[in-house]
Structures are given as C-alpha cells and as structure tokens.
Nucleic acid binder design. Structure first.
Length: 850
RNA sequence: GGGCGAGUGGCGGAAUUGGUAGACGCGUUGGUCUUAGGAACCAAUAGUGCAAGCUGUGAAGGUUCGAGUCCUUUCUCGCCUACCA
C-alpha cells in the first residue's frame, strides 16, 4: 500500500506547470458553446497579495472551474489596477521610478497568484499603467469630450493637504481623506468632470434589471443617486441688496404656509455681498469647522447668520420672514437655499428654536383635530393640512404635495422638479502616476484635444517626484507641445484611477486589439460579465462609475447588446483575525506571541502578558495580518483554499484561525490516505456484493447537493460536503465493494472535489490512470431517491419515533406498521385517533385525545 | 437621524416548499497506539435527568396537526449612510 504522505510541494507545482504548458485556461470565442465571463475585481499591485485576495480569487476560481466542467466556455482573466498614489509615494520614499516599483510588484504578485492554482487565462493579462492600455482610455476621454459628456469647470474641490491632491466627494470620509486621513480643505480649481448626473435616471432604472445583484448594493446605489420629487420655488425678497428673488428646492411645498425663515448656504451667490463683512467671515469659518467633526454632526447644532433680507411667502404676500445663512445648508444640493418650516422638519425646528422664530403648525396627524399644535419636536408624519387657507383638508402626503405643486404652477410661483443627489464625477488628479488627460491649452487658455494620431500622451519618465504638488507641472520639456505648428501647454492633471477600472472588463475581451479599446465582435460574445466578485467597499464608487462608463461609451454610438456591464455581482466578506497588544499597548502580530494554552505572552518575554482584542479585518496598522505566502509555504495552496472557503459563508466575514488552517491541511493528508485505500480496492477486483447500492445513492445525492451549493454560492457548505464524503467513504471502504462501481463513483466524487482542491483532485485522477478531460457529473435521480426512508412519527405534532421503511408506502400501510411500534402503542393505547396527517415519504402525525 | 441585515451549543456555522434542529469543522473530555509526528485512530460532546422523559433557535404573543423558517410586538448587535431641504 502506498502510504506516503501527500506532498503538495511536488504535486502543486507539477500541475500548475502542466496547466500552463497545455494552455488549458486560455479562452477564445466559440459560438458552439455558451460563454461564461467570470471576473474578480483586479488588484492594486501594492507588493504582495493579502488574505483578502486569496479569498476573492479562490471564490472566483471555484466558480470558473465549476462552469468549465459544466461545459461553459469560460473567460477568467486577471490584470492590474496599476496607477495610483501608493506607487508614487513608495517611489518617492525609495527614490525609484513608480513604473519600476509597480512592475516589480506585479511580477511578485503574479507568481503568488499562480501558486494559488488559479484557473486564469494569463494570456489576457493587462496593466492599466501600460501605454497599450491607457492610450485607449485617452481615446475614450476624447470621445466623451466630443459627445459633450466631459467638461471643465472651476469648482470647489476637496483638497487633501497631505497627498496634495483633489479628492472626489466619495473619497472624503468624515471630512478626512480616505487614504491619508488628513482633514480635507476646500480649494477652488479648474477641474475635468464626467457628466454622470446626466444618466441619473438611467442608472437608477438600470438597478431594477440587475436581478443577480445583492439587494444591499442596489439600495446603496439608489440612495447615492438620491432621487427626490418636489418643487422649485422662487421667493421674492426685500432688503438693501440688489437681489429680487431666491430659488429653493423643496419636497414639502404643501407646508408653505408654515414658512418661517429662509436659509442659505454660506457659498450661496448672495454671500458675495458679505465678503467684506468680518462677522460673516468669522461665521463662515465657524461653519467649516463644525461641518467636519463627527461630534458636531451628532449634536447637530444649527447656527445661522442673519442677513438684511426678508423673503416673502408667495402664497401669503403679507408674510415676510428673515433670510439667514445657515451651516446646515449645502451649496451643491438643490439651489443651496432652503425654505424653513419648523413645525414639520426637525432640522428647521432646531434652528427656529435657537433663533426664536415663529413655529406654525400646518399639518395635523389623522387622529388629532384642527387645534393640534406641534410640541417639543417637529411633526413629519402623515395627516391632514390645516391653517393653510385653500390647502386645508388635503391628505398628507398622498395628495397634498402633488396638489400644491399644481396650484403653485398655476399661479406661476413654482414648478415641479426632480432633484438628484448624484453629482458629476470630478476626474482630475494633481498627480504624476496616472493616465494623462489628452488635452492642451493655448496661450489664452482655450482647450484643444490632442489629435488622436498623437495618442497616447505618454507619461514622461525621469520626473522629479520630490517637488511639491504635481511633478508634471515642473516637467517643462513635456508640458510644452506644438500642435499643427502652434504652441500649447499640456494639461498636467491625470485621471482618477477609477476611470481605469471603469472599462477594464471590456479590455479583457480583446486585450491585444491595438486600434481601439475593444473589438466589437469580442465584447458581443463575452459581455456582459456573468459573475463579478469583489469587496462590498466598491458598492458605490467603482460599480456606479463602471455602469456609467458603459452607458457613456454606448451613448450616441455603438449598438451594444447589453447596457449593464455586470449581470451578476457577488460581494465577499473580509478576512478577520484577533488583535493583540502587549502590556505597553503596542500592537503585536500573531507570530510575536506564544500561548501556554491559557494565556498569551509576548515571545521570549514570559512576563509580558498579551491582551487579546476583538477580531477585526486584517490590517497592517493593527498587525493582525497573516501572510498568504507563509501559509502557502507551510500548507500548500489546496489547504489554504479549503480553509478560506470552509469557515463562513463567502458573503460574510471569515475569522482566520491557525487551528482551522491546520485542520484543513491534516484533512488533505487523511484524504490522501483514503485515496490510497480506495486505489487498492479498485485494483483488487471485488465483485458485486450489494453494498455498492449504498455508495451509488450517496454519490448521486452528493452530486446534487454540491451542484446546488455551487449554484447558490454556499461554498462553505461544499467544504462540509467534502468532509461528509470523506467520512462516508472511509467507513464504506471497510466493506467489500465492487471494484468497477467503486471506481465509477469515486471518479465522480473527485470531480466534485476539483473546483475547491484542484491540484489534489488532478493528482488522484492521474493516479487512477485518468487524463484531464472530464465533465461535471449529473445526478441520477433514481439514486437520489432513497429506497428506505426515515419516517417521522408524530403524536399530536410531537416527534415520538422514527421508522425506517420502504419508500412510497401509503398511509394505511404505514399506520399499520407504526401501530405495532412500542412507543406509538404506548401513546395510542386506550385513545382514539381523531385525525391523521400523512406526508408522503416524510412523516405521519397522529392526532389523539384522551 | 435614515437605510439594510442578523440573532441557533463553548466557537465558526448547517437546516428545498413550514415537516427528525444543531450537518460539517474547531475546541473540549475519555480511550487506543508508539516510527514522539504538524501524529494517527476510536468514542462522547445543546441543557437537564440514573432513566423513560422534559426543556431548547434573543424575548413575548399569534397562525398551524406541525414554526429556526410565516405574522404581530419588542430587545440586542452589526454594517452602510448622514444636516439631501
């Protein structure tokens, strides 16, 4: 008997080499087959892969391998999201070229991914920092520019003083830069914008078509797009400023009779009249301070600055209310002006209380009468309009809003308006390591597109990264360009890296195509992506931008067969690990600690007791990181894959455990021992004994279980199924069993195992004398239905016994049989059976009474 | 404040249409073995009870022959989002 240990160190490289040599993952159009495009979010080449990558790509690999075995023509590519600030920062620190740094990381990470045994078509590898890639991106930019979907405007931007760059609104978290954590400042700059808001409605409607997206993500995008229905109202003003009216957007025009003040953003154009006013400047400063801190938002203190203006209620011209600047009004939503109705909006209520403004109730709850008065908080629920002259009696909100708008439109006071929260996408970045924006300016500052024949606008090499701000600004020989004999200065901003990842899924379809970003024929075959897999942190940004890009490319142009790039989306959870701190509160990594089985100590310091913190997602700052490379060295790729899939459903966070990892490793050893036992049995030529029926039943049930679980992304259950199969076979193999049947079933089982542990399965397969070409087994239903059933016997709805008997027996026979059952007899003795509930092949329930 | 989701053993988690709750793994306990290994193997493991049994899926009600699953109320936790007019 071959009792050697399973040696992943020879087996895994052997198969990886074989797969590469035979190009078994290389993909091409084949119209005779149904295609399946499986895509995982491509990594940023930061240095080495981390456990999150291992999880993400293992999930994708299981799916790809399964679909391939199912007979699909699978496209499973991989590339690199290679532009971005870390490269620039690392290059600056180490005095390197970002390109060199990035390419080195790419080659390291590529080797690591290969060691995981991923079924990737490496012939399609792309890197967004390569000229071959970004030249097409520049062409797309110019196309969108021609279509009017790209424009330039001066705008307040979020300026990250540490990274010296502009951030998109989405990249500002709690008033801080998403990467640097620095408090974001406001700065006015000329910026390039993609007109994503033009597609707000389409992007919203498209969500309904995405049946295979997690609802959570769709809700997040919906909220982000933020459609609201309301009304635009122009309020006439009186005062010593040359202002006649102020426009507001409101979703509650029906509460107009409760008008009590009008509030403006400090950036509202009216603020220009106060630019000399020191008190106003002070107020403005105060606003920018409170606007960012978390406490300020939590407390939500409303502050205002009173202007000399009064606003007139258009429905009641005798009513005049004060106009304030207020800290809670945002310039970039609506018109940067709010009509305040304190009785029915908590925020307005707080403001009115603070400045002692009138609070007039105009909506009463259904169960109250017209004397209802708003008390200690605003009433924003449903009810009936009161104290509002001709609006009185309207039901809130079903008819009041729409009726009021009709009236306002009739009186020419306001008009219906749909407002979106989604803002245009600022794509300019004052950074070197990105895709150059292919435009230039003449001496007057007018924009001209770089001629398409001159693309790509290449990033200059050997720039001085130690200069402040954008190195491209100081690269004079690159900056100055002659187009058609005329002098121009190049745009020195580069594109947000989210632009690069907005179309890479198209590039994978025809990565070598040189004329254009993609070949129509190729995307017609491969697109859309059938299954996209990645972290939920991209639920809004990347996914929304990609959806926009697809629509923008298709706008007035190509006739695509699809309008959504990602048909299926799966968001996997994070990989977590316990955190450790020593007695001095310094973070410790897992390999810095030892345990005596009870407490943890710092290695080599027995008196330094380690505090174990909660399990959190692995991060360098908390040092709770496990390096996949070390783990692969110790346990091999299959064992890692097994573990990363086993402990939690893929959409939830998983807790890394050394013991669990070790168990997966040990399991493969056990499985190898079992394999060798089976091999011996197969060679011994036993004949039919009757027990093979049991094996066939099991195998066919397992085929159907694992297939189902694969279809439902229940990958953790698949691992349980693999263990279950081991447990079953390990017992069964002790019996005498027909060799032919054993082999036939075992082969099917190995195929079931192969998406999760491909090297191991291939090795066993070959060991039995089989080649590579296999198909996913189909469950034979005549076996999945067991001959014997465990019938549940209930008395008055409570389980009292189990009876194992033939399948398909009817109620009468079953009843007859259970009556002789000791336990049942005890219960029904001296009692009458009132009713029998019989579920075929499942249970019988006897209802009895005294 | 708003939105979404989840509560099942010591732990991670299983459980088609309502139909044997706790699959599978970890951990723990007991045992066997000695090529002392990253051991392996066997058995037990929701609680309680000697047992038959009783109790058990955050809590309280309800529907049903039957509820982890459906309905109502409620509590707790997690995630996302935030002055959106």
């Amino acid at each position: 008997m071959n009792s050697e240990r399973y040696n992943f160190k020879t087996v895994e490289p052997k198969w990886q080499k074989k797969w590469a040599e035979n190009r078994i993952f290389s993909s091409k159009i084949d119209h005779s087959k149904e295609k399946f495009y499986c895509l995982e979010m491509f990594p940023y080449p930061s240095g080495k892969i981390h456990m999150g990558h291992v999880r993400n790509y293992t999930i994708g690999d299981v799916l790809s391998r399964y679909k391939t075995l199912k007979g699909f023509n699978v496209l499973h590519p991989m590339g690199w999201d290679a532009f971005g600030m870390p490269a620039e920062n690392a290059a600056r620190e180490n005095n390197l070229d970002p390109k060199v740094w990035t390419n080195k990381n790419i080659s390291t990470m590529k080797e690591q991914l290969k060691r995981l045994g991923l079924s990737i078509d490496w012939e399609r590898e792309i890197s967004t920092c390569s000229e071959e890639y970004y030249k097409h991106q520049q062409l797309f930019f110019l196309e969108l520019f021609e279509k009017g979907l790209v424009y330039r405007k001066e705008n307040y931007v979020n300026w990250d003083p540490v990274d010296q760059t502009v951030l998109a609104n989405e990249q500002v978290i709690d008033g801080k830069g998403w990467r640097s954590g620095a408090v974001v400042e406001r700065k006015k700059l000329n910026q390039w914008f993609f007109n994503i808001s033009k597609f707000s409605q389409e992007l919203l409607d498209g969500l309904d078509k995405l049946k295979q997206w997690p609802n959570k993500v769709k809700v997040m995008q919906k909220n982000w797009i933020g459609k609201s229905f309301g009304c635009e109202i122009a309020f006439k003003t009186e005062g010593d400023l040359p202002i006649e009216e102020i426009k507001c957007f409101t979703t509650r025009p029906d509460t107009l009779f409760g008008f009590s003040f009008l509030a403006l953003s400090v950036d509202h154009e009216i603020s220009k009249f106060y630019s000399e006013d020191l008190k106003f400047q002070e107020f403005k400063k105060e606003c920018s301070k409170t606007g960012t801190t978390e406490e300020a938002i939590a407390i939500g203190e409303k502050i205002g600055f009173k202007t000399n203006l009064m606003a007139i209620n258009p429905l009641n011209p005798s009513q005049k209310v004060p106009v304030f600047f207020a800290n809670f009004v945002l310039m970039d939503y609506g018109f940067g002006a709010v009509f305040g109705c304190p009785a029915h909006d908590q925020r307005d209520y707080d403001f009115a209380k603070k400045y002692d403004l009138n609070i007039k109730t105009v909506v009463r709850p259904e169960e109250q009468d017209d004397k209802f008065i708003v008390g200690k908080e605003a009433y924003s629920g449903s009810g009936v309009i009161i104290n509002s002259e001709f609006l009185n009696g309207l039901r809130v909100p079903e008819e009041s809003i729409i009726k009021t708008i009709e009236i306002l439109e009739e009186k020419n006071i306001g008009k219906k308006k749909i407002n979106f929260r989604l803002k245009d996408w600022g794509v300019s970045r004052q950074r070197y390591w990105g895709c150059p924006i292919p435009v230039a300016y003449d001496e007057n500052g007018s924009v001209t597109a770089i001629p398409k024949k001159d693309l790509p606008v290449k990033l200059p090499e050997k720039v001085d990264l130690n200069s402040k701000g954008n190195p491209l600004d100081f690269k004079e020989d690159w900056k100055n360009v002659i187009i058609n004999g005329k002098k121009y200065t190049r745009e020195t901003d580069t594109l947000d890296t989210f632009v690069c990842s907005s179309w890479y899924y198209l590039r994978f379809c025809s990565p070598q195509e040189s004329e254009y970003g993609f070949k129509k024929e190729e995307i017609d075959y491969w697109m859309p992506v059938d299954q996209y897999i990645g972290g939920v942190e991209h639920a809004i940004l990347h996914l929304l931008y990609s959806r926009f890009f697809m629509k923008a490319i298709g706008y007035k142009n190509h006739n695509f067969k699809f309008d959504e790039p990602f048909q299926g989306l799966f968001t996997q959870g994070m990989v977590c690990h316990e955190t450790y701190k020593d007695k001095n509160n310094n973070w410790l990594s897992p390999d810095q600690i030892v345990s005596d089985g009870d407490k943890y100590y710092k290695k080599d310091e027995p008196d330094n007791i380690v505090k174990v913190g909660p399990s959190e997602s692995m991060s360098k700052s908390k040092k709770n990181v496990i390096d996949p490379e070390n783990i692969m060295n110790s346990y091999g790729a299959d064992a890692v894959r097994l573990f990363i899939l086993s402990d939690s459903p893929p959409e939830k966070d998983v807790q890394w455990s050394e013991q669990g990892m070790n168990a997966s490793y040990k399991f493969l050893q056990k499985l190898w021992t079992l394999h060798n036992k089976i091999k011996v049995k197969i060679q011994n030529n036993f004949n039919l004994t009757g027990s093979e029926k049991n094996l066939e039943n099991f195998t066919n049930q397992m085929i159907s279980k694992i297939t189902n679980n694969l279809e439902n992304f229940s990958y953790n259950v698949i691992i349980a199924n693999i263990y279950e199969t081991y447990n079953f076979l390990n017992k069964e193999i002790e019996k005498e069993i027909d060799s032919k049947k054993l082999k036939e079933n075992y082969i099917k089982i190995l195929i079931l195992f192969s998406p999760a542990i491909p090297h191991f399965s291939s090795e066993c397969f070959e060991d039995l004398g089989y080649g590579d070409k296999v198909h996913w087994p189909i469950a034979n239903l005549s076996f999945t239905n067991k001959d014997k059933i465990d019938y549940v016997i209930q008395i008055n709805g409570k389980k009292r016994a189990i009876l194992n008997d033939n399948r398909d027996i009817d109620q009468e026979s079953l009843l007859l049989k259970i009556k002789s059952n000791k336990i049942v007899a005890k219960y029904i003795k001296d009692k009458s059976i009132d009713k029998i509930i019989f579920v075929k092949n499942r249970l019988i329930n006897l209802l009895i009474h005294e």
